[in-house]
Computed example of a mutant assay.
Amino acid sequence: MEKKLVKILENACALCLCILVVAVACQVISREILHAAATWTTEIGRAMFLAVVFLGTPILIIEEGQMAVTMIKDMASRKKTTALLFNVIGDLVIYFGLFTLTYGAYNRTLAEWHTMIPTVEWITYGYLYLVMLIGCLSMIFMQVRRTKKYILSYLAKEET
């Protein structure tokens, strides 16, 4: 399930990145060559950037690719129980942030579902918040998998 989700998210991010590049290219061409701003490119670019960030972050979580300062955790890494405690405390902070973000994205999705974006009327703000909600739920899923992985690793080391 994890690998399928990662593959889906990677493909979605690649598609969004391609659309972002086309939108930015259209914006540059319209401003520099045609001397007329294409207002729709700004909104499409913003939407695609949001999608790349929120759909790409779950991949970073499961692959542990995000940047982190681990100085204190590294000093405690010799003691397995202390390292586990730091990991759990860190994860609790992450879960609090993710659940808060998910709750906010859910509420905004419902509130803005029918609010049209003026320059791109076929996209509503609710769609953007839906992408955020899907990304947040994916981040929670990946974070749970990551937490489970290091807890099982700790328990396996304790048995030996």
Score class of each variant (00 low, 15 high):
residue 92 L to K: 05
residue 13 C to V: 06
residue 58 P to G: 01
residue 100 T to G: 09
residue 29 I to G: 04
residue 27 Q to N: 06
residue 130 L to Q: 06
residue 122 W to R: 07
residue 6 V to P: 00
residue 33 I to Q: 07
residue 5 L to H: 02
residue 123 I to A: 03
residue 85 L to N: 12
residue 67 M to R: 05
residue 128 L to M: 11
residue 35 H to C: 06
residue 134 I to A: 08
residue 59 I to Q: 03
residue 150 Y to L: 06
residue 96 F to Q: 11
residue 28 V to L: 14
residue 52 V to T: 10
residue 78 R to T: 15
residue 43 E to L: 07
residue 159 E to M: 10
residue 125 Y to L: 10
residue 121 E to T: 06
residue 141 F to V: 00
residue 51 A to H: 07
residue 55 L to A: 00
residue 108 R to G: 05
residue 106 Y to C: 08
residue 71 M to K: 13
residue 35 H to N: 09
residue 68 A to N: 04
residue 4 K to M: 11
residue 140 I to D: 03
residue 125 Y to M: 11
residue 29 I to R: 03
residue 142 M to T: 00
residue 42 T to F: 09
residue 57 T to G: 10
residue 152 L to T: 11
residue 29 I to C: 12
residue 129 Y to D: 13
residue 147 T to R: 03
residue 52 V to D: 01
residue 105 A to S: 13
residue 135 G to M: 08
residue 123 I to K: 01
residue 96 F to I: 12
residue 40 W to A: 07
residue 52 V to Q: 00
residue 100 T to W: 13
residue 65 G to D: 15
residue 119 T to D: 12
residue 31 R to E: 11
residue 138 S to Q: 08
residue 138 S to A: 15
residue 104 G to E: 08
residue 26 C to S: 08
residue 135 G to K: 06
residue 141 F to H: 02
residue 91 D to N: 09
residue 46 R to Q: 14
residue 32 E to Q: 10
residue 130 L to I: 07
residue 23 A to N: 02
residue 41 T to K: 02
residue 105 A to R: 07
residue 22 V to A: 08
residue 4 K to Y: 14
residue 24 V to M: 08
residue 145 R to G: 15
residue 92 L to T: 11
residue 53 V to L: 10
residue 12 A to R: 00
residue 151 I to R: 01
residue 156 A to D: 11
residue 134 I to G: 02
residue 65 G to R: 02
residue 156 A to F: 15
residue 136 C to H: 09
residue 145 R to W: 03
residue 153 S to N: 12
residue 33 I to S: 06
residue 31 R to F: 02
residue 19 I to K: 04
residue 97 G to L: 13
residue 132 M to G: 05
residue 38 A to L: 04
residue 109 T to L: 15
residue 13 C to E: 05
residue 32 E to C: 09
residue 1 M to Q: 02
residue 58 P to L: 11
residue 155 L to W: 07
residue 25 A to R: 05
residue 74 D to Y: 09
residue 111 A to D: 11
residue 2 E to I: 15
residue 55 L to C: 12
residue 109 T to A: 11
residue 75 M to T: 12
residue 15 L to G: 10
residue 111 A to W: 01
residue 98 L to M: 12
residue 142 M to R: 00
residue 140 I to K: 00
residue 27 Q to C: 04
residue 81 T to M: 10
residue 125 Y to E: 09
residue 114 H to A: 13
residue 104 G to I: 06
residue 15 L to V: 13
residue 40 W to P: 01
residue 7 K to G: 14
residue 58 P to H: 14
residue 147 T to E: 04
residue 6 V to F: 11
residue 55 L to P: 00
residue 123 I to Q: 05
residue 5 L to R: 02
residue 71 M to H: 15
residue 95 Y to I: 14
residue 58 P to T: 02
residue 83 A to V: 14
residue 65 G to V: 12
residue 105 A to F: 09
residue 141 F to R: 01
residue 87 N to T: 08
residue 23 A to V: 04
residue 35 H to R: 09
residue 84 L to Q: 06
residue 48 M to A: 07
residue 129 Y to W: 14
residue 108 R to L: 13
residue 140 I to S: 00
residue 16 C to N: 03
residue 111 A to P: 03
residue 106 Y to N: 02
residue 74 D to H: 12
residue 34 L to A: 06
residue 126 G to Q: 05
residue 12 A to P: 01
residue 67 M to S: 13
residue 79 K to H: 08
residue 19 I to W: 06
residue 145 R to S: 15
residue 141 F to N: 01
residue 120 V to F: 04
residue 64 E to V: 15
residue 47 A to E: 04
residue 87 N to K: 03
residue 39 T to H: 14
residue 19 I to A: 10
residue 49 F to K: 06
residue 91 D to H: 10
residue 21 V to P: 01
